[in-house]
Each structure stands twice: as C-alpha cells, then as structure tokens.
Design a protein around this nucleic acid. Structure first.
Length: 511
DNA sequence: AATCTTCTCGCAACCGAATC
DNA sequence: GATTCGGTTGCGAGAAGATT
C-alpha cells in the first residue's frame, strides 16, 4: 500500500491509502484525462503548467506516510512526512529532457535491457518522460537510500535517472498511460546491493572517461541514438556514381557496397558488425562514433531475428573497431571494379536487365576485338582468314567456337570500316586534285567535316602518297615480322616497333 | 550472404561438304 | 572412303548486377 493524496502537491495531507492494483488502474484509465491533456498543451514548466500539475492526485510510491505538522527553525508550521510502512517498491524517473527519441520507443529500449528488473513502466504525467518501479525484497528503512543509489548508479547505470527528488517520501503525480507496462512476477532481491564496492565505482568512472575522450558522453549514447531515418539520409552505403540523366553509363569504378544481411544469426554478429563499421567508415570518412553506434544499434535491434546482442556488448564491439580503424587507418572493405552503372530512378528489374545486357555487350566486344586483331594480322601477313587460323593467331585468348560464332560479323565490320576509309581517302584525293596518285592513310582515317576537309593538309589528314610511303617500306615489313613473332597482339607489336623507330607506324593501303 | 536474372562463353557433339 | 574443316546447337559455367 502507498499513501494517496487526492488534492495533489497543492495540499499533501490526509491518510488515504491505495494498493498497487489501484495505482495501475488509475494510470491506465486516468479519471483526470482532460486535465492531463490540457497540461500537455501548455508550455513545459510554464507557470500555468506547474499550477495545473500541482492539482493532479499524487502518491508516495515508497510507502505509507503520516503527515505530521511540525515547526521548522523559523517557527513556521510545516507538514512533514514520516514513514510508517515501506511499500517494497523503488521508484525511478527519467526527465523528458534526457530522452530524445519517441517515448514509446524509449520504453521499449528500457525493457530490452531491464525487463528482468522492472515490474511497472510508464510515461510520466507530462507525457514525455518515463517512470518505472522495481519490486524489491530485502528493502529496509535503513538501507533504502543506499539501495536506491545502487540501482541508479550500478544496475541502471545506462539510464539517465533523475536525481532531483530522491527522498524516500518523494511524490509521484499519477500519470496517464493506457500502454502501461506491468509484470507482477518480477521481483529483485536487494539485500546484497551495497555501494561500498570501489571497483564498481571505478569501472563506471573509467568507462565514462573513455567515452568522453572519444567525443561522446555515455549518457547520450545510451539514451538517444540518432534515429534511422536521419542516418539513412546522411550516410552513404555504397560508392556514389553519377549517371546524370542517362539510363546507364559505362565506366570502370572501384566500387564498394555495405552489405546488410536480412538476418544476422548468432555467432555472426561480431563479424558482421565489424565489417559494417569498416564499410561505413570507408564510405563516410567523417562519420562519428555516435553515428556508428546509432546505426549498428538499429541493425542490432532489427536484423538479428529478435535476439540482439546485449547493448553493452554491442557498444563495446563498435567502439573497439572504431578505435582500431581510427588509429591504424586500416579499413577492411572488399572493393571490385564495377563497369556498368544504372540510373537509380529506373526500376530494379529494368536496371538489372540493362546491366546484364551491357555486361554481355562488353564481353562480346572483347571477343570481337580479339578476333579483329587476329584477322588484321592474317591480312597483313597475306594469310587465309579462317576460324582455325584466327584461333592459332589469337594464342588461346579465345575459344574456337566463339571465333566461329563471330568471325563473319567481324569480317563484315572490317569491310565496312575499309569502305569508310576509302571514302575519306577518295574525298581527300578530290580535294587535292591528284586523281592519278596512289595513297595510303596513316593510322586510323580521320573523320572530318567537309568544311574542315578543305582547310586541312594531307599531313593533317593522314594521307600519304604512295611515292612517299615507299620509302617507309622497311618499316612496314618489320611490322609484319613483329606480327609473325608476337602473334595476334597487334598493339604490342606496334608498340615494340615504336620503341625501335620512335614513331607510330600503322598503315592501311588504299588502291 | 545467398539467390535470382540475364547474358555470353566454352565445351563437346554433331552434321555436311570439301579434301586427301 | 577417311579425314579435315566450317558451321550449328545444347548445356552448363561464369560474370555482373540487383534483390532480399
């Protein structure tokens, strides 16, 4: 039983008592709903707010008290509460200023950590703070203060419990909370709760100090993680590749993506969390420990199949890895070269289709290149262009069936290119009015507009008359020799040639 | 991490025509 | 008539990206 005062703090008098079952009902279905709702609309701690709050009925949760009028030093008569009988419950509250998340969420957080100790948990009368009760066996008038302190500082060390009103006779304004949490079976033996344990105190101090050194305070980290929607907006989870308005772009990018398994099973949490921290820090170089804690906390709560790692353990794991990375700079992330990047505005299915098609095309283009290079060598060496010859020239860079599949298409492409070159050369010939001369085009023929064509010299166009070219015959021959020596790799052969002669010498002949 | 989707490649078997 | 070679086809492997 506990003392009950119908007139509230305004007038704490009388000897009315209620049971905890009644208290529970009063909170769940508060008869003063209207007044309390009105209170919520007032500015917190404003004059009107305080006045209204004082009118609401309250209890002394720690027991039954006699209200005895006594004289103070000045000789004024004041009411003193004298303990008659302990209720066996310990009352704690947390001020709304210490809670940054939604209050129901915070209640959940408290239960996740302390459901084995708390028998009642609800919102406070202001609607934003919380209170909770611990049913304590072994509590006495003598050990009350020490036990209460023990719970505040050691058992509930993660919670920013209000220390404004600590006395045994403290009042508790009956709040309104239809979602009040009750578990009558929870009882805690407090006989051994002694504050004289120096190691404990020291441990807490050290932990706090360490946290402060890292730039965040224990209390804040533990009570008000950044909510996930804010984190999702702020943090990067994969390498950013700007595709602009295009559906996709092709660009080799060293790509990193953080992976969040749908379910992180037991035994994999440490490993997974550590990997995630590495990715987060790699992708967000300025990320703070607080942000990492907040994010991993969210994952721990939502992706562990309802069996999250203990909060302390989680915080420790995160902090340790964060420190290691900060100190060593080593971030263990798996990067890969991603070539096709699709526009995130497209649907997942479309993006997948595009990526597959483009990757297929890249692969095919590569085969085409190998085949084309081999064919060019064969032509230069005046050999027959057959799949088997191409295969031999390609020296294992491509399989025979693939060559058979594509070589005709490649031949067509080569033919088309040649036609284009002839066109350019013909144009150039007309421009130069040297119709009876044999020309060669050095390197790849240039694509120029008709207008530019008039103004460009032969040299600029890469047009070389045969007479001039003949003097370079030795170079041409040596190129073929190199092809014979090095096979299909035309680029390599030409490069070697460049090394020897210090000039670029790829020629095509136009007849 | 595992799975799905889409695509190309490589392999092997096969067919038919050309060649020896 | 046997062998060689070009061309086709089915099937599984593997690559890359997206999804869950």
């Amino acid at each position: 039983m506990i003392s009950y005062y119908n007139d509230g703090l305004k007038k704490v008098v009388g000897d009315e008592k209620i049971s905890f079952d009644i208290l529970q009902s009063l909170i769940k279905a508060n008869p003063n709903t209207e007044l309390i709702e009105q209170l919520h609309s007032e500015a917190y701690k404003s004059e009107r707010y305080v006045a209204m709050k004082k009118q609401l009925p309250c209890v002394k949760p720690h027991g039954i008290f006699d209200i005895i009028p006594t004289k103070n030093k000045k000789g004024e008569v004041i009411n003193t509460a004298v303990l008659k009988q302990l209720s066996g419950y310990l009352y704690f509250d947390i001020d709304k200023n210490k809670i940054e998340c939604e209050v129901e969420l915070y209640k959940e957080f408290i239960l996740q950590e302390y459901a084995d100790k708390i028998c009642m948990l609800g919102k406070s009368v202001g609607g934003r703070g919380v209170f909770f009760l611990v049913k304590a066996t072994g509590i006495t008038k003598e050990n009350f203060n020490e036990v209460h302190q023990y719970f505040r500082e050691i058992v509930f060390k993660k919670l920013p419990i209000d220390t404004e009103a600590l006395g045994i006779a403290r009042n508790f304004i009956i709040p309104m909370d239809e979602k009040l949490y009750i578990d009558k079976s929870i009882e805690v033996d407090v006989s051994d709760c002694k504050i004289n344990n120096e190691n404990n105190k020291k441990g807490i101090k050290q932990y706090k100090k360490k946290e402060e050194e890292r730039g965040c305070i224990v209390r804040d980290t533990l009570t008000s993680f950044i909510t996930i929607d804010i984190l999702l907006k702020k943090l990067r989870f994969k390498t950013a590749v700007d595709v602009g308005d295009a559906d996709y772009i092709i660009k080799p990018v060293e790509f990193v993506q953080m992976f969040v398994p749908k379910v992180i099973t037991d035994g994999k949490k440490h490993k997974t969390f550590r990997s995630m921290i590495n990715h987060l820090m790699f992708l967000n170089p300025d990320i703070t420990l607080f942000e990492v804690h907040s994010y991993i906390n969210f994952i721990n709560q939502n992706f562990t199949n309802d069996s999250p790692m203990g909060r302390t353990e989680m915080m420790r794991t995160v902090a340790a890895e964060f420190e290691r990375i900060t100190e060593t700079g080593e971030k263990f992330v798996k990067t890969r070269i991603k070539k096709v990047h699709t526009n995130s505005k497209l649907s997942g299915k479309d993006r997948n289709i595009i990526a597959n098609q483009q990757n297929g095309k890249l692969r095919k283009d590569n085969s085409f290149e190998i085949i084309e290079a081999s064919i060019e060598v064969l032509i230069a060496m005046e050999m027959e262009v057959t799949p088997i010859e191409i295969f031999k020239t390609a020296k294992g860079n491509i399989s025979l069936p693939t060559i058979k599949r594509h070589y005709k298409t490649v031949l067509e492409q080569i033919e088309m290119k040649k036609q284009a070159e002839i066109k350019t050369a013909t144009k150039a010939k007309i421009v130069n009015k040297q119709n009876n001369t044999l020309y060669a085009i050095q390197g790849n023929s240039k694509r120029v507009s008709d207008r530019d064509l008039h103004d460009m010299t032969d040299e600029e166009l890469g047009i070389v008359p045969w007479d001039v070219l003949r003097t370079k015959e030795t170079i041409f021959k040596s190129q073929i020799d190199l092809h014979k020596e090095y096979g299909a790799n035309r680029t390599a052969a030409i490069k070697l040639l460049e090394k020897n002669t210090e000039r670029s010498v790829s020629f095509r002949f136009i007849f």
